[in-house]
């Protein structure tokens, strides 16, 4: 029996919204420790790695590890019927062939319950090696979202270079070139506005803006976003969910012609 109760159901809704355009049919893996998802997009260029700890839930029971095969666009439709302040309950028997979702509104006392048929999804798990990244940048997630959106006007590829000068985002296209340089900023009193750049050695990589734009759907989950890069490796873009978990995106670089 798997049963989990999340007082702030909206967190789960935001997680679904942050990945449902990138990965469609996913397994939500339930263990005694956490709910997790690891899934690549259809082109195998990006990997989503989500984790939500059992400590995020008011009640969490998982007798046996389960994989809940779900179509995220369908799950997203169901979450449209959840109120902002609703409590969310997930429930599945061990012979999981369906998932129960319940939305409880304490104020009005209404309870909505939905049943989703589960799918059998064959998904090979990728081994993501632990890497000591050469550059790690923490910045306001809204700033990253704006940079990605603005540079999409200029072209389809973003060059991200981390040097002692700072962090530069560049895009070149038919109409010209755009550069946005961010410098370390730990002066502002609001922690969330800080930009911290830890650079062990300079790194410069190219990425498809289309994917970076998908990743910024996770912006509502976290005021800050963490970018980690090493020469010749996929970038990791991490949206921490308070201390309860994270949504991480890995993206393979584009090679220079």
């Amino acid at each position: 029996m798997f049963e989990a109760r999340l007082a702030n159901g909206n967190i789960f809704k935001m997680i679904v919204e942050s990945i449902r355009e990138l990965v469609v049919d996913v397994n939500i893996d339930c263990s005694t420790e956490e709910l997790s998802i690891q899934c690549m997009d259809s082109a195998h260029v990006a990997l989503v790695s989500m984790s939500l700890s059992q400590s995020a839930f008011d009640h969490f029971r998982c007798d046996r590890s389960l994989s809940l095969g779900l179509n995220l666009p369908n799950v997203s439709k169901i979450f449209k019927m959840m109120g902002r302040d609703d409590t969310m309950v997930l429930k599945a028997e061990d012979s999981a062939d369906k998932l129960m979702l319940m939305f409880e509104n304490d104020k009005s006392g209404t309870i909505a319950d939905f049943e989703l048929k589960l799918m059998a999804i064959e998904a090979e798990q990728l081994g993501v090696p632990d890497t000591a990244y050469k550059c790690s940048i923490s910045m306001p997630s809204s700033e990253f979202q704006r940079i990605v959106r603005d540079l999409q006007v200029m072209g389809d590829t973003c060059k991200i270079s981390c040097t002692k000068e700072g962090l530069k985002f560049s895009a070149t296209g038919q109409i010209g070139t755009g550069n946005i340089l961010m410098r370390q900023n730990v002066a502002s009193e609001k922690e969330e506005d800080h930009v911290t750049i830890d650079m062990e050695e300079p790194v410069e990589l190219n990425f498809a803006l289309r994917y970076l734009n998908f990743f910024t759907k996770a912006t509502p989950l976290s005021p800050t976003v963490i970018l980690k890069m090493s020469p010749g490796l996929p970038i990791v873009i991490e949206y921490p969910i308070e201390q309860l978990g994270h949504v991480k995106y890995y993206l393979a670089p584009k090679m220079e012609e």
Binding site: V45, L233, P234, M255
Partner: peptide, 14 residues
Amino acid sequence: SGLQATLHKYFGYS
């Protein structure tokens, strides 16, 4: 512009 690699170039199957 440029050639898009896939993640299999970097991550194996566990």
